[in-house]
Measured scan of single mutants.
Amino acid sequence: EEERTFTNEEEARKAKKEAEKRGLRVTVTKDGTTWRVRIG
């Protein structure tokens, strides 16, 4: 499991799409101005 943080919503969405392409489970949460993308 890996967690990545982004300040840019577009980049967070891109990371989510890429992980889904690899067949991984992805959770995206917004924490104030930060987007957290949890993969795995």
Rank of each mutant, 00 (worst) to 15 (best):
E1N: 09
E1P: 11
E1M: 14
E1H: 11
E1D: 11
E2R: 10
E2I: 14
E2Q: 11
E2D: 08
E2P: 06
E2V: 13
E2S: 11
E3M: 09
E3Q: 06
E3G: 05
E3N: 06
E3P: 04
E3K: 03
E3Y: 11
R4F: 15
R4D: 03
R4Q: 11
R4M: 14
R4A: 07
R4W: 15
T5R: 07
T5H: 08
T5V: 14
T5S: 08
T5G: 03
T5N: 05
F6L: 02
F6P: 00
F6M: 02
F6Q: 00
F6W: 02
T7L: 09
T7E: 10
T7M: 10
N8A: 04
N8E: 06
N8F: 04
N8Q: 05
N8R: 06
E9F: 14
E9T: 02
E9K: 07
E9M: 07
E9W: 15
E9G: 06
E9N: 03
E10T: 09
E10R: 13
E10G: 09
E10Q: 11
E10S: 10
E10P: 06
E11Y: 04
E11N: 05
E11W: 04
E11T: 04
E11L: 05
E11F: 04
E11D: 13
E11G: 06
A12D: 00
A12C: 10
A12K: 00
A12Y: 06
A12V: 06
R13N: 13
R13S: 09
R13G: 06
R13H: 12
R13V: 13
R13L: 15
K14R: 12
K14M: 12
K14H: 11
K14Q: 12
K14Y: 11
K14G: 06
A15G: 01
A15H: 08
A15I: 06
K16G: 13
K16Q: 15
K16M: 15
K16V: 15
K16D: 00
K16N: 02
K16I: 15
K16S: 10
K16A: 15
K16F: 14
K16T: 10
K17T: 12
K17E: 15
K17S: 12
K17W: 14
K17A: 14
K17Y: 14
K17L: 14
E18P: 00
E18G: 04
E18F: 07
E18I: 06
E18D: 10
E18L: 07
E18M: 08
E18R: 05
A19S: 03
A19N: 03
A19L: 14
A19Y: 14
A19P: 01
E20F: 04
E20H: 04
E20L: 08
E20W: 05
E20D: 04
E20R: 05
E20G: 03
K21T: 10
K21L: 13
K21E: 13
K21W: 08
R22Q: 09
R22S: 06
R22Y: 08
R22D: 04
R22W: 08
R22N: 08
G23E: 01
G23D: 02
G23F: 04
G23A: 02
G23M: 03
G23H: 04
L24A: 04
L24R: 05
L24D: 03
L24I: 05
L24W: 07
L24Y: 11
L24T: 02
R25F: 11
R25K: 11
R25I: 10
R25H: 12
R25P: 06
R25W: 11
R25A: 07
R25D: 05
V26A: 12
V26P: 01
V26Y: 02
V26F: 02
V26N: 00
V26W: 02
T27N: 05
T27H: 07
T27S: 09
T27L: 07
V28A: 01
V28I: 15
V28T: 03
V28E: 00
V28K: 00
V28H: 00
V28S: 00
T29H: 08
T29P: 00
T29M: 09
T29E: 09
T29Q: 07
T29W: 14
T29D: 05
T29G: 02
K30E: 05
K30S: 12
K30I: 08
K30Q: 12
D31E: 12
D31V: 13
D31R: 05
D31C: 11
D31M: 08
D31H: 09
D31Y: 08
G32P: 01
G32S: 03
G32N: 04
T33F: 12
T33P: 14
T33A: 12
T33W: 08
T33H: 12
T33R: 07
T34N: 11
T34R: 10
T34V: 15
T34A: 08
T34G: 09
T34F: 14
T34Y: 14
W35T: 02
W35G: 01
W35N: 01
W35Y: 06
R36T: 12
R36G: 01
R36V: 15
R36E: 03
R36S: 05
R36D: 01
V37L: 12
V37W: 02
V37S: 00
V37E: 02
V37H: 01
V37G: 00
R38Q: 08
R38M: 11
R38G: 04
R38I: 14
R38N: 08
R38D: 04
I39H: 02
I39S: 04
I39G: 01
I39T: 05
I39W: 07
I39Y: 08
I39D: 01
I39N: 01
I39A: 03
G40D: 12
G40N: 11
G40I: 15
G40P: 04
G40A: 13
G40H: 15
G40T: 14
